[in-house]
């Protein structure tokens, strides 16, 4: 029982990080029909931005803020203006190919300009554990869970309780109707891209101490986030959260009770099962399209 609690807490913490990246997938899809296969690299780049700052003596909190700003500009506004806007009118496929290319390009850029080797990344939380309900949980897991949870809840509240959030949701549901209602659709879509970039920076801060900052660190997280978004429901932000946590917890349980060798396959198996039996995702809504 003690093992189970520890595994669930640790898995939920990891899953919450997947959820942050998965949220980006669902937000971009809903707002602009964009599937971003460079999402993993959007998590990797802020890690190196923070590293560049911290190696020059900048404290981690300030480095994180710098990374958020840089991400918002480059991976939010820049990505939308340079990659998405010119390609979106040609449909999803060219954009998917472009983001795959962007993923490779960003990895090679970091590999060539910074390093091919992993780099140490400071942790926000202290090492060690503390007692909780008869078991021990690490500060890192609980801290990660709190930060990721806070961000996800804040985002949900923002989308549901604020005028801007509702306007963004309106754009996601029906752009033409949103325009008729006087909503500035272009600005709302831009906000979504900026939010995605900042979410990726937060995920980067939380995952890099474990993954270590490396040019290809985004491969795994990008893949898991994509699976999480599909499992939860690509058209539901709450689905991304569920998908992420489900993958994180199941990975831990399978890794412990079956074998760590099967851990990496959990997300893929879950993804296949969901695609076969509930293609719209666990919390997603079936969409119909006229041809």
């Amino acid at each position: 029982m003690v093992d189970l609690i520890q595994l669930i807490v640790s898995g939920t913490a990891t899953g919450a990080i997947y959820a942050l990246a998965a949220l980006g997938f669902t937000l971009l899809w809903q707002a602009s029909g964009t599937i971003n296969f460079a999402q993993g690299e959007f998590v990797m780049l802020p890690a190196f931005t923070m590293l560049i700052c911290t190696t020059r003596g900048v404290p981690l909190w300030l480095a994180f803020l710098v990374a958020c700003v840089v991400s918002a500009i480059l991976l939010g506004i820049g990505f939308k203006r340079i990659v998405v806007d010119p390609l979106i009118r040609h449909g999803v496929i060219p954009l998917v190919i472009a983001t795959l290319g962007l993923s490779i390009g960003l990895k090679q850029l970091v590999k060539a300009s910074y390093a091919a080797e992993a780099q140490p990344f400071p942790s926000v939380f202290p090492a060690g554990q503390f007692p909780l309900f008869g078991t021990h949980v690490s500060y890192s897991d609980v801290g990660t869970l709190l930060i990721a949870g806070l961000i996800v809840i804040s985002l949900q509240l923002f989308l549901k309780r604020t005028v801007t959030g509702r306007a963004m949701q309106a754009c996601a549901q029906n752009m033409d109707a949103a325009k008729v209602l006087g909503i500035n659709v272009k600005t709302m879509v831009l906000y979504v891209f900026i939010i995605n970039a900042v979410l990726a920076a937060v995920a980067s801060l939380l995952i890099s101490p474990t993954y270590l900052a490396k040019f290809d660190m985004g491969d795994s997280i990008g893949q898991k986030a994509f699976f999480a978004a599909i499992i939860g429901g690509f058209n539901q932000t709450s689905g991304a959260l569920l998908g992420g946590v489900l993958i994180g917890v199941l990975e831990n349980l399978i890794g412990f009770y079956v074998s760590p060798a099967y851990k990496e396959g959990v997300a893929l198996v879950l993804f296949m099962v969901v695609i076969l039996f509930r293609p719209e995702g666990l919390l997603g809504k079936a969409e119909e399209r006229k041809v």
């Binding site: 093992d3 660190m217 795994s220 990975e251 760590p260 990496e264």
Partner: peptide, 16 residues
């Protein structure tokens, strides 16, 4: 406990 080359998460291995 066997792990994979390039494995990033050792939580399950360490718990074991």
């Amino acid at each position: 406990v066997s792990t994979d080359q390039g494995q990033v998460d050792f939580s399950g291995a360490v718990l074991k």
